[in-house]
Design a protein around this nucleic acid. Structure first.
Length: 216
DNA sequence: TAGGCCATCTGGTCCT
DNA sequence: AGGACCAGATGGCCTA
């Protein structure tokens, strides 16, 4: 499903067009085996485990987990609140509440990342180990363009179906062979037998349309 | 080394 | 009150 083959090459290029550096940078990144190093990892486990994450070297990560923190006064002293809101609470309670909030936020971000992974899995781009995973912004932009492209393809298909239906009706009444009918499915478009440009697809040519693909 | 990307922490705001 | 959401700050990792 999420295969490059499902999208014509030119369409794919146009998909990437609005991306700019971010997208190309992501694709470019895949050179060596280490290109996908950090990005080849599975989505974060549901139950967060700092030791299982590649980026556990992050200093802030040391505070993750719900009970692992040996309270570091230099990092989060109760006095950090200059509004005085938390001053009245016991430091342990404050700390516990903070950790709980942090854990929730972490979970929320992991869910968001899981959703992004799901999105990446259904949009067409090279899912090869040698290609770096799309960044978040690139994923969103590519998905948007992909949706727009699919909508356009759907519309094109609808028009073609309408055109074919009409052609069938006319040919059954032996007016003209299909493709040479003087009647076109769109008002005001009396198309000659070999049109310069297919008016069925104003946005351009279509691989679905005989007029567009046939060379005179 | 600069820039891009990311995870996490944190405080604020809004909603139930 | 507690949870969800958001945006800013921070620091780490990686690549050109």
């Amino acid at each position: 499903m999420a295969d490059l083959k499902s999208v014509p090459a030119d369409a794919y290029l146009s998909l990437a067009q609005s991306y700019g550096q971010t997208f190309y940078g992501a694709l470019r990144g895949g050179g060596g085996p280490d290109a996908a190093r950090n990005y080849a990892g599975a989505p974060p486990p549901l139950d967060f485990n700092p030791s299982s994450r590649d980026r556990s070297g992050d200093s802030s990560d040391d505070q993750t987990g719900d009970d692992e923190d040996s309270f570091d006064p230099t990092k989060s002293s109760p006095t950090y609140d200059n509004e005085g809101k938390l001053i009245g609470k016991k430091p342990k309670e404050q700390r516990s509440l903070r950790l709980s909030i942090n854990a929730r936020e972490r979970r929320r971000m992991h869910d968001l990342n899981d959703a992004l992974d799901g999105l990446r899995s259904v949009i067409p781009y090279a899912h090869s180990p040698s290609v770096r995973k799309l960044s978040k912004i690139a994923t969103l932009l590519l998905a948007k363009n992909y949706i727009l492209m699919q909508a356009q393809a759907l519309e094109e298909m609808r028009r073609l179906v309408a055109y074919l239906n009409q052609g069938q009706t006319l040919s059954s009444s032996s007016l003209a062979p299909f493709g040479q009918s003087s009647v076109y499915p769109y008002p005001g478009t009396n198309v000659p037998n070999t049109p310069e440009k297919c008016s069925a697809f104003p946005a351009g040519t279509s691989s679905l349309c005989k007029h567009c693909t046939d060379k005179p």
